[in-house]
Each structure stands twice: as structure tokens, then as C-alpha cells.
Design a protein around this nucleic acid. Structure first.
Lengths: 207, 207, 207, 207
DNA sequence: GATGAATGAGGGTTCATTCAT
DNA sequence: TATGAATGAACCCTCATTCAT
């Protein structure tokens, strides 16, 4: 029928609205905890009717998940935009990607990424990242002590980043990358303390 | 004379109720974020009328502050119950006190202590603790790089502790103490990366 | 184009609901003092959900102000619907407008107009009216004694009207108009007693 | 037994407490409408436990009635403390008593006496007063037009008094007495307008 | 008689969601 | 698809009253 062209136009308009809402959700959930953000806030920021939040995301919760997913996808892309390199450089490269991305989107990412992994939604995304890290270090990602230490490192790194962003980046990005490596080394040694059977010496030389 | 005893009896009963409410608040705020806890939850857990929350704590917020204050006071006591010792041991002693207390009250402390310092109420309490740590290490607590690194360490340690508690303590407490030291060493080296002028070699020998 | 009609239809429906709520508020606030009226009462009377009171009037207070404003606007229109005439007749005309309007809406106006000026919300509306009256009488509306006497007259007139309405109008409207004039004359003489410098003789001849 | 003397002492103490509460109620109900006054306000003002309000007056409402009754009793005494005199003077005497009493207790009486008779509790007390006035004027207190006019006069007089008190008495008491007489004359003429059969000429000469 | 801890009904408001248009 | 009016559950808080001490 004659419905295809206009339908596509409508779909495009709909997608645009969805995008406005997603951006608004990103912004709002970045500023306040979930329960303090209202559907009305998101809609107002997006400049559309609040009913559309349910329409496009099946409710507030859906909008939240969409926002978190979105930002982590962006982050993953930034981290993996690494040039082929030797391992130590690939780790540093990831850190650079991580810090670079967050430095570019400090407002929207401060609460949606640097949340200390307390939120269940983030747990998986984070763990996947840490497994990649373990792989790069040539260590067994299923070792409990190592996993615990790496999560601990992740929190340390996030805290450092969060303070850095809030203080308007008082240090060079490269200094932070080096600091990350120091923290990671500490975490590996901590893993060894927790599980003496875990050999981290080779991994340490990679840093 | 004869009025004091009965008066005390009444007050004792009231104090007991207040205690029940405080424990309930401790419990509820330990399980869910502030906004998800209702006054009704607290009262129900305490087994009293909801009006008493306002009666004893002037509203929900007051109950929250009372709960946070309470648990941190207990924690501080546990940390400072250290025997006189040489510095390395004093640091380890504090770690032991910290871990021991939380291990004893995993439920109530998990959300009221190990919150990643995101909550403004906790910021001061945490910073004070870190300044003590810097003092024990013979370092300047006002150095920005060190302060950032120590906050980062605090998050790492808290995460490790939280996972440990949630996993029902798969490691020995002493192993954790050692891991804390390794993390702290990593943090000191990270501080040095951020601010090369900061000399941490002597502090490292203390660990 | 095609969007205007349906939009208007929706808005009309909303306006109708608003009107129902306004009428309900008028009715409820006419029967009981502010604090005895509940938002639930208004909504129930209007036959809608109680949340709509906040939706349309931003809370109970807003509904009250809307009700008072509404009724006074109607009253003012009634009073000013006077034909051009000589002063004595214009005063009588205002009285007729006042009494006629209230006689038509005895229920809603009894507490929202004839409240003795005790309520701050009404003070301005009343004073403006009395200044008009002073003007028609050729007297200075800023004279304190006159102002006091006129307020006193207003209370007297309101009381007479209220009793008249409550007793189901035992007198002719014209008799009340004449009585108003007598009361007003008494008030002018009282003003002269309070402030002997105030000459009311010419004003009295106008009645 | 040995209980009589101490019992009497207790009763005296109880009566004293009751008195404190009554005074407090007088004060509180004078400042805010009934629903805005809390039992706690009264007790706090009296300096006793709030439970005593129920104990002594069977609840808040009882305290209110007691307060209103009390103040009107005092007022009646003040009005009737008139020396024997000819009628015009006796009327003026009553006005003087009325005004004098209120001038002495402006705070507590402003809301408990000068309330425009809107409150049902006051209606009887007021009507009795007006019947006395009609009697002094030699008029039939049961005539509807006269009764209406007198109530109207009462409101006018109260308003004048209230403004006078609130403005810190800008006029002489005697000027007010004269103004009252002028208002009363106006009311009598108004009564005649309402009921032409009512002859007020003789009464007017008395003023 | 006096206290104030305890109760619980009831208030106004917010807000996620639904749905007719 | 977009709107926003409408719903009603849930929230926190206030407060008159009761009652054990």
C-alpha cells in the first residue's frame, strides 16, 4: 500500500524520539540514584510526553536498563579500540580507552559506570571485563582469589577515576594509567596472599 | 526518691523500644537503599507502631542518621581496640579490628559500612580513618595524590571485604590482612606515579 | 489542522474535569472550614480520583485559592453589571447585584463570600470593594475612621445577607437594599463619631 | 483516714493544673483556628504533659468549649457590672464594659469573642446579649427583622472593635461607644426597612 | 494526679502506569 | 506514534487519645 514510505518515516521519527529518551535517561540516571529519578524528569529532559517512557522502554526500569546497557556498550567499544600490540601495551591501551571515554563523558558516566559494582545490572558487564584482563595477564580467570582481587582492583580504579573526574582531572591521563598498573600489581600480590598457590610472578613482569 | 525508680523503669522501657527501632533501622537500611526502606518496614521489623519512628527519631531521616552513626561508632571502637605495637603491627591490628567487626555483623554492616563512600554521610568518617592511616605510614595526609590513592585503597579493601562476607569468608582473616597490605602497597606506588615528588619508599618498608 | 480538533476535544474533557473539581471545591469549602475539608472529599464530590486535585490545582491549597478566586470573580461581575445611573442608584444597584448573585448561589457563596473578612485571602477583594463605595460617596477612602466604619458596615451587611439566605429569604430583596442603605448611613455617622473632622453630611444625602 | 488533708492538697494542685491548661487553651485558641491548635500546643504552653488535656477536659473539644465558656462568662460579668442608670446610659455602660474587657484581654479575646458569630458555640451567648439589648430599647426581641438587624449590628460592632484592637486602639473608648450608638441606630432603621410595621422611633430617641 | 510512650487513623502528596484520543 | 488526563497505591508525617506506671 501507500503505507511503506510514510511508515518508514514514522519509524524514523519514532527512533529519534527513542533516542531523545535514551539520552535523557542517561543524563538523569547519571545525576541521581534510580529512585530519585522520575519518569517525568526523563520525559521533560527529552522534551516529550512522559507516557512515552513506558511506550518505548516498557516502564522506568526498562529505561534504566537501556541507559546502563548503552553506556557500557560505548565503553566497551572505547576499550577495545586498541591497536594490536604486545600484552603490556594492550593492557595500558585498555586503560587509556577506559579513561579516555569517561573523560569525554564525565557527566553521564559518573553514576552509570563508576558505581562500585554495587548494582546488579553492572556485575556481568564488569566481570566480563575482568576476565579479559585475566586473560591478558595469562592467569586463570576462574581462580577465586584472583577474581576477588581483580574486582577489588576494579573498585580501586573506578574510585581513582571518579575522584579524578570530579576534581577536574588534576593528573595527566598517562600518570593515571601508570597508577592503574601499580594498583593492579598490588591486587595481584593480594591475590597471592589469599591463595599462595596462585603464581603471579610472570603476570607481574607484564606490568 | 520513690519517683526515681519508676521513672527509670519507664525510661528503660522507652529506651528498649528505641533500641528495637534502632536495630530494625540498622537491619532495614542494611538490606536496601534509603529510598526503598519505608518507615513501615522499620516499625514492622521492630514490632511497634510506625508513629514511633517519628516519636523517637523525628522522622525517617533521623532514623537513618542514627543507624549510620551507631554502626560507625561501633566500628571505630573495634578498630581502635588495638594493643600498643610497632607501626606495621598497628596497621595490621586496625585491619584486624575492621575485618573482625564486620565479620561479626555482616548483615547490618554490609550496606552501612561497605558502601564505597558514595554516601555523603560516610565521607567524613572514612576520610578521618584514612588520615590516621597516612599518619601511621609517616606520610602527609594532605598530599592530593596520596589522599586519592588511599581512597582508592579503601574502596579496594571494602570490595574485598564485601565479597569475602558475601561468599561466607572463603579465606582466613589473616590472609585478608596480608592482602590488605598488598593492596595498600600498590596504592602507595600508585600515589607515587601520580605525584613523583611523593616519596613512599620508607612507608613501603613498614608494610 | 486535523490535530486541532481532537486536541481541543481532549482539552475540553480535561477542562470539564477541572470544572467538576472546581465546583466540588466550591461546594466543599462552602460547607466546612479549610482544614476540615479533605482532598478526598473534593475528589469524591467531583467523582474523580484524588490525585487529580494535585494534577489540576497543584495541591489542596491551590484548589482553595481557585475556588475563592472563582466565586469573587463571579461576584464582581454581578456587582458591576450596573446600568449607568446617578450615584444613589448606582450604590443601590451594586447592592442589588451583590444580593442577587448570592441569592442565586446561596450554597457555594455562604462560606466563600460571607466570611466576615476574617480570612486573609478575602481581605484585598473586600477592601477594593469598599474603596469603590467610598468613591461613590465622594469620601476619602484613605481616612482611617471611614475605612474602619466601612469594614464594619461590610460585616453588618454580610451578616444580614447570611441570615437572610439561611432563613430562606424572609424579606424582599428591595427591603434588604434599603436596609443596607440604613446600615451604611449608620456607619457613616459612626465614622464621624470616630473622627469628628470627617464630614459625612453630603454623603448621607446621597443615601 | 489520713487521706482527707492530702487529698484536698492534691485537689488544689489538680485545680491549679486545670487552670493552667484552661489559660493555655484560651491563649492557643485565641491565636489559631481550632484545627490548627494541637493538644500538644496547649500542654506545652501550660507546661504539663499533653495527656492531661484529655484528663481534665475529656479531649481537645472539651478544652475548646471550656475556653469559650470561660471567656464569655468573664465578658458577661464585665458587661453587667453596670451601675443603675437611665436607659441610654445603661446601653452605653454595657458598651463600655464590653470594650473595656476586650481592651484588657485583646490577645485571648480576639478570636474567642470577635469571631463574627460564625461559630455555633457562640450563637446562644450572643443572642442572649442581643435580647437584653432589645429589652433596654423597649423593643420586641422576637421580631425577626429586629433580631436580624441586631445580629447585623453585633457583627459591625465586633468588626470595629477587632480593627480597633489590632490597630492598637487609635480612637478613644468613648468615641467608640458613640460610634456603637450610631451603628445601632442604623441597625434599628434597617430593621424598620425590613419590617415597616416595626416602630423604632422611640427606641431611636433613647440613643 | 501526672507522665509521656504507644497506637493507629487519617492527612496531603508523589508518581509509575494505563489508555482514550 | 504521541499525548497527557486519569488512576490509585504507597509514601511520610501529624496528632488525638489511651494507658501503664
Amino acid at each position: 500500500m501507500s503505507s511503506e514510505k510514510p511508515l518508514t518515516a514514522r519509524q524514523a521519527a519514532a527512533e529519534q524520539t527513542r533516542r531523545k529518551l535514551l539520552d535523557a535517561a542517561l543524563q538523569e540516571f547519571s545525576r541521581r540514584p534510580y529512585l530519585e529519578v522520575t519518569v517525568g524528569d526523563i520525559a521533560r529532559t527529552a522534551g516529550v510526553a512522559h507516557g512515552l517512557v513506558s511506550h518505548h522502554f516498557q516502564g522506568k526500569q526498562g529505561a534504566y536498563v537501556a541507559a546502563v546497557t548503552e553506556v557500557h556498550e560505548q565503553l566497551r567499544e572505547a576499550e577495545e579500540a586498541e591497536l594490536p600490540a604486545a600484552v603490556p601495551d594492550r593492557i595500558r591501551q585498555r586503560f587509556r580507552g577506559f579513561l579516555g571515554f569517561l573523560a569525554e563523558h564525565p557527566d553521564r558516566a559518573l553514576n552509570l559506570v563508576l558505581v562500585g559494582g554495587r548494582d546488579e545490572v553492572f556485575a556481568d558487564l564488569r566481570d566480563r571485563n575482568l576476565r579479559v584482563l585475566a586473560g591478558l595477564l595469562g592467569l586463570d580467570p576462574d581462580n577465586h582469589a584472583l577474581a576477588a582481587a581483580l574486582r577489588s582492583f576494579a573498585d580501586a580504579a573506578e574510585r581513582l577515576t571518579a575522584d579524578w573526574l570530579r576534581a577536574e582531572r588534576p593528573f595527566e591521563l598517562e600518570a593515571l594509567v601508570a597508577a592503574f598498573c601499580a594498583l593492579l600489581a598490588g591486587a595481584l600480590r593480594a591475590a597471592h596472599e589469599l591463595d599462595p598457590a596462585l603464581d603471579v610472578t610472570r603476570a607481574l613482569t607484564l606490568l
